[in-house]
Amino acid sequence: MNEFAIERYLNRIIEEREQGEKEKYVSPYFPEYVREVVPDMGLDERVSQLTTEQIERVIKRVIGKQTARLKSIIETCMHCGLCSDACQWYISNDRDPTYAPVAKIRMTLGEMIKRNFKVDPEFIKFCARVVFTECNICHRCSMYCPFGLDITAIIRLVRRICFILGVVPQRQLDQAQTHITFLNQVWLSQNDYLDTLFWREEEGIYELKNLRIPIDKEGAEILWFPLGAEPKTGVDHIDRFAKIMAVAGVDWTMTSKDTWDSSNMSMFINDYFTMERIVRGLYENAKRLRVKRIVLTE
């Protein structure tokens, strides 16, 4: 989000506060769950295309054989509240119990199991809101649980269910889709990526004489994978990196092939196979070029 977008966002919040109460969303499944209405194409529009049968099939696919284990995790919880005190969402929302980690898994996966996977599309939208917008997958709740119950793992399974059903907040779904189709997080085509590397080498020579951005240099010491945004919107990062490597006298290269983006946004929606494709792609590039080390932007 650039500074203008942040300013617009803050202005909107101030305006809304001045105008008084916003429209509220009350969960039809858990009346104590009351939130502001936040329109999002990824939640509101995708869900309209689902059927109960389709949802049931996907839940079974994701958790089918683990159902008993997951149910026992949820039922083992003795409501000690330690996970809640570990959760920044719970703490920062006046200790509202609907933000408690255990509530999040009971209201989502717990309910799916309780209803024998027969839940309606609106329920999936509710689950997507909880697991994508009210949990950061920080894992603190799991660390604090005296029984070692992996609450986060359950949240992630619900995220996977929502992802396969296509009910994910718009921005997050967009990034998942670009990783699936282009193996980078910014929809950058092979030709645009390479074109950018040539362009940045040409721009860079004005700041460092004879700057070079080596492409596919076999046997280099370092293979650098930028973050997707760098060749797309932060293009000067490419020549900055080249300058640092040149001044440091490092033998380095970039790849001409796909999986040049070191980010793995697929991890946040538990798209397991795309996660594997990305990691394998990074290693295949390193193998092909026989480099000694991989350096990633973060």
């Binding site: 990824g42 296509g166 921005r171």
Partner: peptide, 19 residues
């Protein structure tokens, strides 16, 4: 090959099977 033009942030586009 990609056979349809992508629309920025149109998450429905992906489901049209464009590749």
């Amino acid at each position: 090959v990609q056979i349809r033009q992508r629309e920025e942030l149109n998450i429905h586009w992906f489901y049209q099977k464009n590749f």
